[in-house]
Nucleic acid binder design. Structure first.
Length: 208
DNA sequence: GGCCAGGTGTAAA
DNA sequence: TTTACACATGGC
C-alpha cells in the first residue's frame, strides 16, 4: 500500500507545484472559496472578474452592495442567489470582527466560519488553509473519489480529513500542495465518468 | 441534449 | 445516520 506521503511525492513529481490558491488577496480567496462550491473554477473566474471590474472585490463593497447587484456579478457561478447571500453573511461577520486581518487571526476561526450559514466544512477548511494559513486538510469531491478508488476507503468528510492529517506532518505547505495536486489528478485522470485510468500516473497502485 | 463542475442546507426514509 | 433534492450557470 502506497502511503499518503509517497502518494504526495508521486503527484508532485508528476504535476509539479500548483501554486494555490489563485488570488491577489485574502478576501479574494474567501470569495473564491464560496463561489467555487460545486462549480467549475472557470465560472468562478468570470464572477471574480465581474467583481473586479465593478470595483467590488473588497469587504466594504460587498457589505454595502444591494443584493440584486451582487447576484448579477456572481451569476456565472450558478446558485447565484444563495452565493450572494453567503458572501454577504461572511462579509458582515468579518466586519464585526474588525476586518480581514483580525478575523483571520481568530483562534476559533474554523468554528466561526462553520457558524456562517452556507459555509460547510470544505469552504471553512479552504479559507482556514489558504487565507489564514492554518494547517487543516481540505477534503473535496475529488479527494473523496480518489481515496475511495485508490485506497478502497470510503468515509465521511472528517474520516477522510483524519486519514490524511494522521499520516502527514501538520504542515500548511504540504496540505496546501496536496489538496491542489489531488484536484489536478482528479481533473486530469480521475473524473467521475470516463476516468483515464490507462494514462493515470498512479494506476499501478490503484485498487479501482 | 445530457452530464459534470474545487458544496451546503433541509427534509424524509 | 444515510439518502434525496433544491439551488443554477457554463463548457464539452
Amino acid at each position: 500500500m502506497v502511503s499518503t506521503k509517497e502518494l504526495f511525492d508521486i503527484l508532485l513529481e508528476e504535476f509539479g507545484p500548483q501554486n494555490w490558491w489563485p488570488g491577489d488577496s485574502d478576501f479574494e480567496i474567501m470569495v473564491g472559496a464560496i463561489l467555487t462550491q460545486n462549480v467549475n473554477w472557470s465560472n468562478v473566474e468570470k464572477a471574480l472578474d465581474n467583481m473586479k471590474k465593478a470595483d467590488s472585490l473588497n469587504l466594504e463593497a460587498v457589505c454595502e452592495m444591494e443584493d440584486e447587484q451582487l447576484e448579477a456579478l456572481v451569476r456565472p457561478t450558478g446558485f447565484y442567489r444563495q452565493k450572494a447571500a453567503r458572501l454577504k453573511r461572511l462579509s458582515r461577520v468579518i466586519l464585526e470582527k474588525g476586518g480581514i486581518k483580525y478575523f483571520l487571526k481568530e483562534d476559533d476561526l474554523r468554528e466561526l466560519l462553520l457558524d456562517v450559514k452556507g459555509i460547510g466544512p470544505e469552504t471553512a477548511d479552504s479559507i482556514a488553509l489558504y487565507a489564514a494559513r492554518i494547517p487543516t486538510f481540505v477534503v473535496d469531491a475529488y479527494t473523496k473519489r480518489i481515496v475511495e478508488r485508490f485506497y478502497g476507503y470510503r468515509g465521511n468528510y472528517d474520516d477522510i480529513k483524519d486519514f490524511f492529517q494522521n499520516s502527514l506532518p501538520k504542515d500548511v505547505d504540504i496540505y496546501n500542495e496536496y489538496h491542489a495536486l489531488l484536484v489536478k489528478l482528479g481533473k486530469t485522470y480521475c473524473k467521475k465518468t470516463d476516468p483515464r485510468c490507462g494514462e493515470c500516473p498512479i494506476s499501478y497502485h490503484c485498487s479501482y
